[in-house]
């Protein structure tokens, strides 16, 4: 048996898309009595298989709503699938939205600790890396001002710096580099590349085919929750672009 770092088998994720969501007890009881409790099924992922070996870089492509982000959330344990098995062997750093978990009322310094502990690190461990994090984020001059005064780019820097301060086994990135200036984007790209070259496995979502071709070896194309094509990044991206043109 081959060893996979990420092994997804027959993953199905379903949501309730009932247009009138019952979120209070009063309505729930009323509808229960009238037998109007609807469950309108929406299949976000439908029987997706994905086997990734250690050190590979995978790109996910597809139109909006194809299930790319849902798949990333399954790998990073945020969503448990309705059916299927998930095997993930290693630490995961999920960059699904930079700055999730940043408290606007706290200073940048306090947020580095808060964000780091949310990711499951110990306080001492963050303290050791504190200077590196600050240096990478280039926020030295704003360390003690509340984050609510920061621009979205500055928040993204803070989030990226904390999340990538430790080398994870698996890095999950979802369209994160859309904010931030060119210089910082380049810096992020370089950091991701250096992680890749030292053995981190990457799962990357982007609508920018060039960046997928540049970073990834392989790619998966999803459409309405179903896998359309798997192959090398170049093949899949070219096929996808071709399809989008027609």
């Amino acid at each position: 048996m081959e060893d996979y770092i990420i092994d997804l088998e027959n993953i199905t994720v379903r949501f309730n898309k009932a247009n009138m969501k019952v979120d209070n007890l009063k309505e729930y009881v009323v509808r229960l009595l009238r037998r109007q409790l609807l469950f309108q099924e929406f299949i976000a992922l439908d029987g997706v298989n994905l086997k990734i070996k250690k050190g590979e870089a995978w790109g996910l492509v597809g139109t909006n709503g194809a299930g790319k982000s849902t798949l990333l959330k399954v790998v990073s344990r945020i969503i448990k699938p309705y059916k299927g098995t998930v095997n993930v062997n290693g630490t995961v750093a999920a960059l699904i939205e930079l700055g999730a978990g940043i408290d606007p009322n706290l200073s940048a310094r306090e947020n580095i600790y808060l964000n780091g502990t949310i990711l499951g690190y110990k306080k001492d461990f963050i303290a050791e890396r504190f200077d590196d994090i600050v240096e990478f984020s280039e926020l030295q001059d704003f360390l003690d001002s509340p984050v609510k005064n920061f621009s979205s780019g500055m928040k993204a820097r803070l989030g990226f710096s904390v999340a990538t301060s430790v080398q994870p086994d698996i890095l999950i990135a979802d369209e994160i580099l859309s904010v931030g200036d060119i210089k910082f984007k380049k810096k992020c790209m370089n950091r991701m590349k250096s992680m890749l070259s030292s053995g981190t496995t990457l799962l990357y979502v982007s609508h920018n085919m060039d960046s997928i071709k540049r970073l990834c070896d392989k790619a998966l194309w999803l459409d309405h929750g179903k896998p359309v094509m798997t192959g090398t990044a170049k093949e899949v991206c070219d096929a996808y672009i071709e399809k989008m043109k027609s």
Binding site: K73, S76, I78, I96, A100, G101
Partner: peptide
């Protein structure tokens, strides 16, 4: 909610 949608804790 916004945090729990984006990170596992």
């Amino acid at each position: 909610a916004s945090l729990l949608k984006k990170t596992y804790v």
